[in-house]
């Protein structure tokens, strides 16, 4: 068996990489795949708290690479799913303590046992980024509809082109339908035109994400979260299904309703 090794990256920080990894990983596990998520952000680990697993960490990625423990000992089993695991980043070490070759070997080893290996890449384009992409065979780029985030995403796409990851997929995160309607936010087509890569999904801005992060429970598990629904669709697309893009026209409110009528005239 050989699993898919997918790196989730963005260039810019704070666009939702870790949230995306947590939700995609949980969504894939929900659909009975065997999944491991690697937090490659050495020194700034976060995936553990987003998943609500921060109290269970004993060993980390660097311990595995330095052979202080066996790989199996460092893998933390999720609270909710038997088939979902986390390999946490080291918090008090430096990213120079792991090399791209070591990441490659680690991913190869994990892909013998798991269906999906998701790598949460650190922000930036330095050593940490190079480590995170080294073992991956596919890439997901997360961006938000802002000038700075799209610019950085473009840079990352360029860098991935010179590696083997020349067909990345895009997640457009934190779309605000109300602002798009007013013409104050770039829409899906605008971003797609500029970046010109495969669109994997669009995730609406959702307060529920903050609440789910507060609790350490991925939004993909909540039935009422719009972002959760968007991530469930993304997971199905990763599995190879064709799922239409979610309508961004939900809950326009009274003024939204009036504006729509007004604009249609």
């Amino acid at each position: 068996m050989s699993g898919r090794v997918i790196v989730v990256t963005s260039g810019k920080g704070g666009v939702g990489k870790t949230t995306a990894v947590a939700n995609i990983g949980t969504g894939l596990a929900l659909n009975n795949h065997k999944v491991v998520m690697i937090d490659a952000d050495i020194g700034l680990r976060n995936l553990d708290v987003v998943m609500g697993l921060e109290n269970r960490i004993v060993y980390d990625l660097i311990d595995v690479v330095e052979k202080k423990c066996r790989l199996r000992q460092a893998l933390i089993k999720d609270k909710r799913f038997e088939n979902l695991f986390l390999l946490p980043a080291a918090q008090t070490r430096d990213k120079s303590e792991i090399s791209p070759q070591q990441m490659k070997a680690l991913c190869a080893e994990l892909s013998e046992e798991f269906d999906y290996i998701l790598i949460d890449c650190p922000a930036g384009i330095e050593q940490g980024f190079k480590n995170a992409v080294a073992g991956a065979t596919e890439a997901i780029i997360v961006t938000t509809p802002e000038v700075s985030a799209v610019r950085d995403a473009d840079r990352i796409i360029g860098l991935l082109h010179s590696s083997d990851l020349d067909d990345p997929m895009l997640i457009l995160n934190r779309i605000r339908p109300d602002m798009v309607r007013k013409g104050d936010m770039m829409n899906i087509d605008d971003v797609n035109d500029i970046l010109a890569i495969r669109l994997l999904g669009v995730v609406p801005d959702d307060e529920g994400i903050i609440i789910s992060t507060n609790k350490g429970e991925p939004a993909v598990l909540g039935k009422n979260s719009k972002a959760g629904e968007a991530f469930r669709n993304i997971v199905r697309r990763i599995q190879g299904e064709t799922v239409p893009l979610m309508s961004m026209d939900f809950d326009p409110g009274l003024f939204g309703f009036l504006r729509k009528m007004f604009n249609n005239k």
């Binding site: 802002e146 000038v147 473009d154 013409g183 500029i194």
Partner: peptide, 15 residues
């Protein structure tokens, strides 16, 4: 001029 037009135009130039 909705601000998204400026966003798209500035991005196009910078890229």
């Amino acid at each position: 001029t909705p601000s998204k037009k400026q966003a798209v135009e500035r991005l196009r130039l910078v890229l």
